[in-house]
């Protein structure tokens, strides 16, 4: 019934209207197989709405979405078999132990008896829950709960994982461990589609991103490609001088591409608009005037910057 497609997620003109308001205003994008795809946007951008439509929990107003070539509206059951979905707020059955919890879900997914045990031990190993099997679910920490929920969605071995803000509420250490887990899953050939409003949390692991704001897609593509779009935009440099200098401002202002120079004692910062390969002009001009500096800092928080430049930051 479905022809194998190159992309695992295909979204076309997808629209979700609540009353008169467009929560998702007709977005189109593809997600390739085997990648980690970040779905990024500020609060109220429409991330959860899009994800719930993909997970067949909601019917869109117009357009369409396909998972593995299967329509999420007309064949929701088929779609559910192909993806594992983790909602933004996950509940667990308090009172069950970790093992009982996983066993319950292995039955709920109707895994054959012979495969249940091995499926559970596989996901337990993957998510590192081995030492907690007899612990009751309600005493687990937030990070461990998150792992347990991920383990549960992994039981039927879905090719696609859709995670809605999986890292929210995790401490930095748990976040890094969670990232490690996601890269491991990618290595196993799974596609991961995850949303977040914190850019830096995704940039180390994402292969591609979509940025959504007020229901509209403002950017979509491989991470490097989007980073290249930054080329035309400004980068901030910060240098620390060996000694205070009166001249530095006038020297810098003569170089084309430099703007917004500011000086605070020995700390000088300026915006650089131009190719990174041309920046040596600046260093050359400074050394020609014998202005020595000890350190250079490039604010290369690319994604953060990209995010700020692409979105207006309005929270809906």
């Amino acid at each position: 019934m479905s022809i194998p497609r190159a992309s695992i997620i295909e979204v076309r003109d997808l629209k979700m209207t609540y009353g008169k308001k467009d929560a998702v205003a007709g977005i189109s994008f593809n997600v390739d197989r085997g990648v980690i795809h970040g779905f990024i946007g500020p609060n109220g951008a429409g991330k959860t709405t899009t994800i719930r439509i993909l997970a067949t929990l909601q019917v869109p107003t117009a357009g369409g979405a396909w998972v593995d070539g299967v329509n999420v509206v007309t064949e929701p059951k088929e779609v559910r078999r192909r993806l594992g979905y983790m909602p933004d707020y996950v509940g667990v059955y308090e009172g069950l132990s970790v093992l009982e919890y996983l066993d319950f879900f292995s039955r709920a997914y109707r895994l054959p008896l012979a495969r249940r045990k091995s499926a559970i031990s596989d996901v337990v190993e993957l998510t590192d829950l081995g030492t907690l099997l007899d612990v009751e679910v309600h005493v687990l920490s937030k990070g461990m709960r998150q792992r347990l929920c991920l383990a549960q969605t992994l039981l039927p071995e879905p090719d696609l994982l859709i995670l809605d803000e999986p890292a929210s509420g995790l401490d930095p250490r748990a976040r890094i461990e969670f990232r490690g887990l996601l890269t491991e899953l990618r290595r196993l050939g799974k596609t991961i589609f995850l949303s977040s409003h914190i850019l830096s949390e995704l940039s180390p692991i994402c292969d591609s991103v979509s940025i959504i704001e007020k229901g509209d897609l403002v950017a979509h593509g491989p991470l490097e490609e989007i980073q290249q779009r930054l080329q035309g935009t400004e980068v901030t440099y910060e240098i620390r001088l060996v000694a205070e200098s009166e001249e530095v401002e006038s020297v810098l202002s003569q170089i084309p591409g430099v703007s917004r120079i500011s000086q605070e004692g020995r700390k000088v910062s300026f915006d650089w608009k131009g190719d990174d390969s041309e920046i040596h002009q600046v260093w050359g001009a400074l050394s020609a005037k014998k202005i020595a500096f000890t350190s250079v800092k490039r604010h290369d928080d690319d994604l953060e910057k990209l995010f700020m430049s692409l979105t207006t930051g309005d929270v809906q």
């Binding site: 979905y85 996950v90 509940g91 109707r110 039927p156």
Partner: peptide
Amino acid sequence: SEKQAKTWEPLISTDI
């Protein structure tokens, strides 16, 4: 109680 504890959606996302 399942709806309020947010366990409902994961549950119906299975084959049940």
